[in-house]
Amino acid sequence: MQKFTNFTGIVAPLDRPNVDTDQIIPKQFLKAVVRSGLGKGLFYDWRNQPDSQFVVDQPRFKEANILVARANFGCGSSREHAVWALADFGFRAVIAPSFADIFHNNCLKNGLLTIMLKPDEVDAIFTAIKQHDAYTLTVDLAAQKVTDDYGWSATFPIDEFAKKCLLEGLDDIALTLQHEQAIAAYEAAHPNPYPT
């Protein structure tokens, strides 16, 4: 995983709660056998029409790399393709009042930051996007803070371990293999339950 660095980006608004992973990337794209190139399937059913007015197709949000949405973003299927699609499309962070558990985990494994803000802070971002063209936020992971150009900012929680992995770009399999002795000891005490 690449190290997560601070960045400033345009924020695209998706004003819906419960955006599920079937919407983020529909089933036909799950037939892929590689991780790359899934951006073409992002929000496909909402976008696949002539003159799509869907948010990421509007000229002012074309360059957006932060998505803001409502509660329970990423619910439903465990498909990591949803995260690969968002990242491939160019998104580096998603802001919402809450995220589904599996989606949230999948994001962290791929360097896509989930920024959980309070509902009124998310409201403030939706309002600010309406008021300002090309509304941007600066994301500072170390400080756990998002800041705009108009003096507004908010802090967000993140698990310390997840933060360290993101900032250092750690390969968590390599990290786990450092505990080989502990795993082997556990296995020695717990034989395979299945007849061989």
């Binding site: 465990s78 990591e80 599996i102 795993i183």
Partner: peptide, 30 residues
């Protein structure tokens, strides 16, 4: 697969994971 919770009906702790975690379990069983 997110419907792995099904197996919890047998008194197990069963849950869905993403592909990166699938790779992690394949490699480490943890």
């Amino acid at each position: 697969d997110s419907h792995t919770a099904t197996h919890g009906a047998l008194g197990a702790l069963a849950f869905g994971i993403g592909t990166s975690e699938v790779e992690h379990v394949l490699a480490t069983q943890c």
